Computed example of a mutant assay.
Amino acid sequence: MTTNFTPIDMQTWQRRDYFYYFTKMMPTGFNVNVDVDITASYDAAKAAGYRFFPVYLHLITRLISEQPEFMIAQRGEQLGHYDHLTPAYSLFHEDDHTISGIWTAYDTDLATFNAHYMADKERYSSQHGAVAKPDQPENAYMINMNPWLHFNNYTPLSFNGLPNYLPVIEAGKYVIENDRRVMPVSFTIHHAVADAWHVSHFFEKLQRALNTPDTWLK
């Protein structure tokens, strides 16, 4: 997919004052951790022949693309937003327990995206090092899954001081509660671009989609 970047007019942007406050006066980000019920979508994905992880990547990326506040970035001095994001995630190497970063081109069609994911996994699974797949696009955001740990809180920390307004999302190991599969999802975002309402709205959409895979998992 072609990536489009739309500049933000700071003179008319509704969030201008909040952006200034949370970047200049009180630089702030926040993290939210929510347990979601993945039972229906997990079962539907398996029945359709998909692994759950690429389905998770696709669904999260699609929902993010519905909210422009989660796609804001800075090009030089120009602030703007993309029309979609690219999921960047980690491959785990069983032989030495290390991870390598890769990314998969997003497509609105799940089957097409899944084919891209499987091709990337096949090509780069044996390549070790911090970065296995080069040329990560500028609209890539961090999304991962920790299948070994069901956590109550996960807060990624950045130490480079660079502006990063794209979300960071991490899922954890699901557990069985009352015959339901419950999975923790961590969402971290810069307060300059989003408030609690935006993240709450995202999780409402996520749970609704997870409950109704027949509407999107073809």
Rank of each mutant, 00 (worst) to 15 (best):
V34D: 01
D35P: 04
T39Y: 04
T39W: 07
A40F: 14
Y42L: 08
D43G: 11
A44M: 14
A44T: 13
A45W: 05
A45L: 06
K46M: 15
K46E: 15
A47E: 15
A48S: 15
G49V: 06
R51Y: 14
F52W: 03
F53H: 05
P54G: 05
V55G: 02
L57V: 02
L57E: 00
L59N: 00
I60T: 15
I60N: 11
T61D: 06
L63P: 01
L63D: 05
L63W: 08
L63H: 08
L63K: 08
S65E: 14
S65K: 12
P68I: 13
F70P: 03
F70S: 00
F70Y: 09
M71R: 08
M71F: 07
M71P: 01
A73S: 09
Q74K: 13
R75E: 05
E77L: 07
E77C: 09
E77M: 07
E77N: 10
Q78F: 06
Q78L: 07
Q78A: 09
L79Q: 00
H81V: 04
Y82D: 00
Y82L: 03
H84C: 07
P87V: 06
A88I: 00
A88Y: 01
A88G: 09
Y89W: 08
S90Q: 12
S90Y: 12
H93F: 08
E94P: 06
D95W: 10
H97F: 14
I99S: 11
S100A: 14
S100V: 09
S100P: 09
I102C: 02
Y106G: 02
Y106H: 04
Y106W: 07
D107V: 09
D107Y: 11
D109V: 11
L110N: 10
L110K: 08
A111H: 09
T112N: 10
F113T: 05
A115P: 11
H116K: 05
H116Y: 10
Y117F: 15
A119N: 12
A119C: 10
E122Y: 12
E122D: 14
R123N: 10
S126W: 12
S126P: 07
Q127K: 11
H128L: 14
G129D: 02
A130L: 15
A132Q: 07
K133A: 07
K133P: 05
P134L: 09
P134I: 01
P134V: 02
P137H: 00
N139E: 06
A140L: 05
